[in-house]
Simulated scan of single mutants.
Amino acid sequence: MRNLFLSVISLFIIVSVGCNSQKKASRITFLSPEPGNIRMGDTIKLQLNIPETEQTDSIVYYVNDSLIERSNGNEPVFFDSSNLRIGPQQLVAKHYQNGELTERKVSVTLLPQQAPEQFSFSVVNTFPHDDEAYTQGLEYQNGFLYESTGEYGHSSLRKVDLATGNVIQKVDLPQTQFGEGLTIIDNRIIQLTWREGIGLVYDKSSFEKVKEFNYQASREGWGICYDGEKLIKSDGSNRLYFLDKDTYAETGRYIDVYNHNGPVDNLNELEYINGKIYANIYLTDKIAIIDPVTGIVEGELNLIGLLPQKDRKLDTDVLNGIAYDRENNRIFVTGKKWNTLFQIKLLSP
């Protein structure tokens, strides 16, 4: 009985000491910054809120696991955010007292300083487009459009005459595959599927499928484009992935896309135009113009009202499809089951 009594007392002491230690440590918190958004280029103030009863031997501050500064007291540390990557940042403070360590963390999101430049448009020309084509990917080369269409049981790869809208060449995808984004590298056509986790590679001339490749970190296949060195792929989130142009494997590099309000999700069909990524934002009439290095949305092209109401049917769907004629600097856009393909010109405010 005595042994049981001593055991209970010992357990009570251990629990009490543990609780008091945890309670003591929890009194140290981040004073600055508070969780939330900050602007790129702002100076971040780092400081802990330490009760007067606590002693401080030193504090070491980190941003995303990179050492920022060591402090022998609790004086504030100032850090320039200009060199940080856009998006979530984790700030860590390691507080040392009598050889004991207390670690505190706070998360902030770095956003661009400026709102995107707003572009409107003018229609330069119009061309016929198959209003049964559920457009998912679009490319232009030498007078022809190369188009990927979606929907299970109706997905296809097409070569279309720009002037007439006539389908010159076509191959249907299996009913179990949903066609998505498309781009061209030399004599190869790369077409994505949606949730099937594979990309398809075709010979450009014959439309013969020559290879398949598997997705990796990217969740799904939405849009894809080629910048002359690497492939850029969207998966419906705000993240764009960079792929090797020969193996189609993800390189591990990516950018997260943000505007001044936060992440820009639902990035869909992509086109690379004059050093920028143009991305349809799914379920909107807007195209985001993205810096491929930083992920910042530098511009927004508002195409509301592009397709006249009289040309809309019950199954006419959203804007989707961007193609660029590099030789003649022409931009073409269309939508899912639209009867028209538009050549447009961007207009600054």
Rank of each mutant, 00 (worst) to 15 (best):
T284S: 15
T284F: 07
A279L: 03
Y272G: 06
E269M: 03
N266K: 15
D291R: 01
A288F: 03
L270K: 04
P292M: 13
V264G: 02
G295S: 05
L270P: 01
V293K: 12
E269V: 12
N302T: 08
T294M: 08
G295V: 06
I289A: 03
I277N: 00
P308L: 07
Q309M: 10
G295M: 04
P292S: 15
L301E: 09
V264I: 07
N280I: 08
G275R: 05
G295R: 00
I290H: 01
V293M: 13
G299P: 10
T284I: 10
Y282G: 05
V297K: 00
T284L: 14
L301N: 13
I287N: 11
K276Y: 05
I289Y: 00
L267P: 08
I281H: 04
L283M: 14
K286F: 08
L267N: 08
E271S: 06
V264R: 00
L301C: 10
T284Y: 03
V297N: 01
T294Q: 07
Y282E: 12
I273F: 02
L283R: 10
L267W: 01
N268T: 06
E269P: 11
E269A: 11
K286G: 09
Q309Y: 09
E271L: 06
I287G: 10
N274M: 02
Q309I: 15
V297I: 06
V297R: 02
I289S: 01
K286W: 09
K276G: 00
L267K: 01
A288C: 01
I289G: 01
N280H: 10
E300K: 04
L270M: 07
A279T: 03
L283D: 14
D291P: 09
D265A: 06
G275F: 04
L303C: 13
I277G: 03
N266M: 14
A288I: 05
Y282M: 08
I296K: 07
D285W: 11
E271R: 07
N280Y: 02
I277P: 00
I273Y: 01
N274K: 13
K310M: 02
P308Y: 10
K286L: 13
L306Q: 13
P308S: 12
D285N: 15
D291L: 01
L307A: 07
Y278I: 03
N274R: 09
V264W: 00
L303K: 13
V293E: 10
Y282N: 05
L306W: 12
I287T: 07
L306K: 13
I277F: 02
L267H: 03
K310A: 06
L270T: 07
L303Y: 14
L270C: 05
N266C: 06
E271G: 02
I290W: 02
K310C: 01
Y278F: 06
E298N: 15
G305C: 13
A279H: 00
E298M: 08
Y272S: 09
E300G: 10
N268F: 08
N274C: 12
I296T: 11
N274E: 11
V264D: 02
D265R: 12
P292E: 15
L306S: 11
V293A: 11
A279P: 08
T294P: 04
G295N: 05
K310V: 05
V297W: 04
Y282W: 14
Y278M: 05
